[in-house]
Design a protein around this nucleic acid. Structure first.
Lengths: 227, 227
DNA sequence: ATGATAACCGAACGCCTGTTCTGTGTCAAG
DNA sequence: CTTGACACAGAACAGGCGTTCGGTTATCAT
């Protein structure tokens, strides 16, 4: 029986090992041992597995913590994406006619994973990586001037004050309205600028009530069918 | 008999162990050994660590693969979120004036992690969990009728044909225009419906060229400052 | 006091694992 | 044919690591 080597880069056995490590890690949340790799990739000797692992390390596909049990990890493009993500509790809906419910810090510790949204760290603006975020599902089409549609998920950071240019969720109790706008404080009034550049801003007198409920940090839209 | 223990569920030592496991896992991509937990949590005996681990397992905070090295993993809310996510290559920009570049399958295997977007599985519509997705960054404000703004990230699934109601990225070579619209095939023409319900559809004759480049499955907007 | 119990420590046992060393068969170049 | 690289197998060694067991201490209810 001849061994036909894959002239270039990785042979199919290398690939099989890489795939096995990935799937094993996904299932058990820890890397496989050398012997486990051998069993599942039809390699009868641990030394051969070690042999391949050395090659994969040299070619940069994996890293190894020598001497440490199960000290293999995928790197680069073979790696399961960094895995750095965090969960944001989905605490309710946001719609024009009702004030939004900002969760208290007590709520943060006891939300159910089912009603939460997972976001990759790499997607997050650097500054907002704290834990104090919450998500709301947009209901109705009243936020289209904010480029936000029915069903979209808005991720907010609770805050009472905003800097000019921040996109905020505000409750205008005089008008009985929740809205998402870019916020600007001007001499004697507030300017709320829609995200859609073709639309005009609205102005709020200082004596009108304006409650900033949170700062919008991200909008996610799962595009479903149009109905 | 009452317990003088830290009144509630977990003592601070339990919490310290949980935190250590989480941070260790993040750093090394594999769980710590019992002895490593002991060292970093000021516990001198492996049996004590085991003692705490048993409690954490009973209280549901961790799971253990008995007998195997480093077989601890966090569960539930202590867990780093499921970790199930995937990487989508960011292959370029999408703007009104230029056709979009759909990557070939060759491109998929060799994209750099730097230019990619990570998405949590849980965010993805069930059907689209295949690997054949790519992302484009929106350039310019020409897509506002699709509720998509400058800087937004659009995630597409490459396809040449669409079903009615799908949101598609199309290239209209007669008009030299790329656009995102909901797609409907009608008797003798195509109707391209903007996502913004206040805007009117455009109609494309069957003899006009219409190239479907992909189906939009998700839109992500990182909300930065307004400038 | 007494006993029960939670919270530890240290050591020992033995499987789990990574490492290393010797050896075998194949293939291509010299 | 010889040589050397390459791709393996198998066994053995040593340290890593989970488990277990006998002890100790402090607190609290009886």
């Amino acid at each position: 029986m001849m061994m036909v080597r894959k002239s270039k880069g990785l042979g199919e056995r290398h690939q099989k090992i890489l795939d096995f490590i990935a799937s094993y890690q996904r299932e058990y949340k820890h890397p496989p041992s050398i012997r486990e790799i051998g069993e599942h990739c039809d390699i009868s000797s641990t030394s051969v597995v070690n042999y391949y692992l050395d090659q994969l390390e040299k070619s940069g596909n994996i890293e190894r913590d020598r001497k440490i049990s199960r000290g293999v990890r995928l790197t680069g493009s073979s790696a399961s994406p960094s895995g750095d993500m965090f969960r944001v509790p989905m605490v309710g809906v946001i719609q024009a006619g009702e004030p939004i419910h900002v969760p208290s810090s007590a709520d943060f510790s006891s939300f159910t994973p089912e009603d939460s949204v997972e976001i990759a760290m790499s997607l997050m603006p650097a500054k907002e990586k704290g834990k104090e975020l919450f998500a709301l599902q947009v209901q109705g089409e009243s936020m289209i001037d904010a480029m936000v549609n029915d069903g979209d998920i808005v991720i907010l950071k609770p805050t009472q004050d905003a800097r000019n240019g921040d996109m905020v969720a505000v409750w205008l109790s005089d008008r009985n309205e929740t809205t998402l706008k870019f916020f600007f404080k001007e001499k004697d009034k507030f300017r709320l600028q829609p995200a859609n550049p073709t639309m005009k801003p609205i102005y709020i007198d200082r004596n009108e009530s304006l409650e900033i409920k949170g700062k919008v940090v991200m909008v996610i839209r799962k595009v479903e069918r149009y109905n």
